[in-house]
Design a protein around this nucleic acid. Sequence first.
DNA 1: TAGATTGTTAATCGATTAACAATC
DNA 2: TAGATTGTTAATCGATTAACAATC
Lengths: 206, 206
Amino acid sequence: MNKGSISMAVIRRLPKYHRCLSDMIDKGIERISSKELSETIGFSASQIRQDFNNFGKFGQQGYGYNVEDLHSAISNIIGLQHTYRLIVLGAGNLGEALVNFGFEKLGFQVDALFDNNTEKIGKIVHGVEVLDVNILETYMSKHPVDIAVITTPVKVAQQIADRVVISGARSIWNFAPVDLVVPEDVIVENVHLVDNLMTLAYLLNS
Amino acid sequence: MNKGSISMAVIRRLPKYHRCLSDMIDKGIERISSKELSETIGFSASQIRQDFNNFGKFGQQGYGYNVEDLHSAISNIIGLQHTYRLIVLGAGNLGEALVNFGFEKLGFQVDALFDNNTEKIGKIVHGVEVLDVNILETYMSKHPVDIAVITTPVKVAQQIADRVVISGARSIWNFAPVDLVVPEDVIVENVHLVDNLMTLAYLLNS
DNA sequence: TAGATTGTTAATCGATTAACAATC
DNA sequence: TAGATTGTTAATCGATTAACAATC
């Protein structure tokens, strides 16, 4: 399944389709046209049809799309039929917040938190144990990790990234305000909170 | 200062320029060409010059850019010469994490947290008091709020958004997994964590 | 002055929108 | 069948890259 040809613009719209269709299922809506979906989601009907047709034919002329089928198709395109194993580096407020967020319902399962603070090590957060970061490599040699979540202070973020990459993490979800350097086969998704705030500041003045 | 003509693509690169130039100042680098900056930041030299020239002429032919001057110019373009007043709605782990993040160094000052949990109300988090969300309107009638940060559960996010908008918040930094409906003069910046995770999932399978 | 590098215009590339034939 | 709406091609729009004259 090589999907390298799909543009990031399309990929980043997939979660919004997923969310919107989930809402429609909850509301009992069974069928939807690209025009109706357009009004709810804010993308043009044309773009919606183009987006879907990157992955196959999910609709029916004269009818539209079956909401459940489309939702299920998009879940599979995103890869939500699989479970992903996460570890969180840094058991501060942010690390704890992420464990409590409820991602496991979507198949993102946090297996462990890591910290270097002896007061935190051994603590259980939402059913997940805080382990000593000294045993990170030992842990990772025994447990596969799909996504390593970095919530450490910025000054140690790169060295933690190096360690999880060497130990086999396939991707990094980075919350530290730094652009990590990683091998090209490792995927990095950044949440640059400071950048978001600066964007807001700019827009407030324009 | 109407900057409505600048594309969002450019605006969202500004914080990265800011961060990169801050790093260069820390390293004692005094001057930089668009070509050198390109190698560090990963944007093309051509794009860098195009981006800057949206706002004015900051370089010198044959020389390049003075790092301190450029950094200071970009700070002003973003609007970092001002202080922004924030309130955080929801004093859970995420709300606390945001208060502790250190945004105040950049001029983003959290004045209060709000929650409806009586166990949390009155608590002081990193010097910021947790107030009863029942007094939100009273508080906002006395204190201007530039950015209302929503870290509440998704089911109350829209109603909290409505309340802060009516009380005069100019913008919302939203962490709840919902697309808020607000008047068009209110700016919303979303941090859709679930969307980020789904993007990672997609990329892990492609 | 000669070399270097910007500011800016022109060319290219990619993404979005419009249009419509296919077909349910 | 007639109406509706997709899938898909063509047109447009906008963003990025290339090129180069201006100039420090």
